[in-house]
Design a protein around this nucleic acid. Structure first.
Length: 332
RNA sequence: CUUUCCGUGGUCCAGACGGCCAGGACACCCGGCUGUAACCCGGGAGGCGCAGGUUCGAUCCCUGCCGGAAAGCCCA
């Protein structure tokens, strides 16, 4: 796989193609980042962007992981002390998951976001940006809650981080695209150059298959701390019609097949092939060399959802195991 | 600081004259149906912000407190 394919595989949006193609010409030593609000336990959502970072690392990029403690603080996630503690655990889990320690730089937001230059640029950006524009870029805001001033500061800082971390590329889920667009539109206004961005897809709700909507926190959440048994149980409960393309639900919400999505975005990028173990009664073991082969088999009825789930649970377990051990170690 | 409005299961809402088991939707848990899940069917857990007062009796009326929202200037 060449650099460009590696950079853009499983990506939902590339902003812009031209800029990213230019990066792909000579990726060695380029800097890319993802920012995360520190969270004690990684879940599959984190790992989706982490997979992209691993791809980019393989393509020659230097990876910066921003542990956004100040952002978490602005989002009312606790005291700085608590937040930094979870940031440390988060870092350990990312390394256990497979980020190359030699080529990954972990940066705490507070290391530079409180510097005078940064703060003054933040004021400049605040002067440039309409309240409405900033408010629309806020990623997560509880439905009933009223926006606080901290909430509009949040996206402005994200935009500025990309400059201050001296990056060549920004990565985030589709939920971050508004922030990235704010960055691209407003940063030139204060004298900086906008950077290209990659947006990874957002996997549908594991329990219902509904995409985009909900965000109320799914019933099923697969995380680094799940035991093998918990993973089997959770995967067993996932929504999985025997098709690639489930129709909309009763309310007209678009649905996806999250079991297939996990194979596509989490399993195949990290394994050469996938072997589904099945009793003879159901046709015996089968091996798929690509996501499409597996998805076609499910869609065509040759692969039963239960068997697909059994295999998925086994692979997810393998992906999560190193991080799970690391967590146990940290807690001991 | 002052005024007004609001505070019912996890969430969003009902509720009455003060008394009758405080209802519903969605979510959640258990079981059935499916070789998975969903759908469907059956069952279940869970609530009146706090403290006083009035009353035979308060989730409902009164006072205070806590918490949330909006307003305060000019036009008058």
């Amino acid at each position: 796989m060449d650099a460009h394919d590696l950079i853009t595989r499983n990506v939902e949006e590339v902003v812009t193609e031209v800029e990213v193609e230019a990066l792909a010409e000579d990726p060695e030593g380029r800097r890319v980042y993802v920012g995360y609000e520190p969270s004690g336990v990684l879940h599959l959502g984190h790992l989706l962007t982490a997979n992209k970072l691993i791809d980019l690392q393989e393509a020659g990029f230097e990876v910066v992981v921003l542990l956004a403690d100040v952002h978490a603080y602005l989002n009312d996630k606790g005291t700085f002390e608590e937040i930094r503690e979870t940031a440390e655990r988060m870092q350990a889990q990312f390394l256990a998951y497979g980020l190359d320690e030699e080529r990954t730089e972990f940066v705490l937001g507070s290391e530079f976001q409180l510097d005078e230059d940064y703060v003054l640029d933040l004021q400049a950006l605040a002067l440039e940006t309409s309240l409405n524009r900033a408010q629309r870029a806020i990623a997560e805001l509880q439905s009933g809650q009223t926006a606080k001033v901290s909430h509009v500061l949040y996206p402005l800082m994200q935009a500025l981080d990309i400059e201050y971390l001296d990056l060549d590329l920004a990565v985030g889920g589709m939920d971050q695209r508004k922030v990235h667009m704010l960055h691209r539109e407003e940063l030139p206004g204060i004298g900086y150059e906008a950077r290209p961005c990659l947006h990874t897809p957002i996997v549908a709700d594991l329990a219902t298959g509904v995409g985009k909507v909900s965000n109320t926190g799914s019933r099923i959440l697969l995380s680094m701390e799940d035991s093998t048994e918990e993973i089997e149980e959770k995967v067993g409960g996932m929504y999985c019609p025997p098709t690639r393309d489930p129709g909309p639900d009763g309310e007209g919400n678009e649905r996806h097949n999250p079991v297939l999505q996990l194979f596509q975005y989490h399993v195949f990028p990290r394994f050469e092939s996938v072997t589904v173990e099945r009793p003879e009664e159901y046709g015996g073991n089968v091996t798929y060399g690509s996501y499409d082969e597996l998805a076609d088999a499910l869609d065509g009825g040759e692969l039963h959802p239960q068997d697909a789930k059994n295999a998925l649970a086994a692979y997810v377990d393998e992906l999560v195991a190193p991080g799970r051990e690391k967590l146990a170690e940290l807690r001991a």
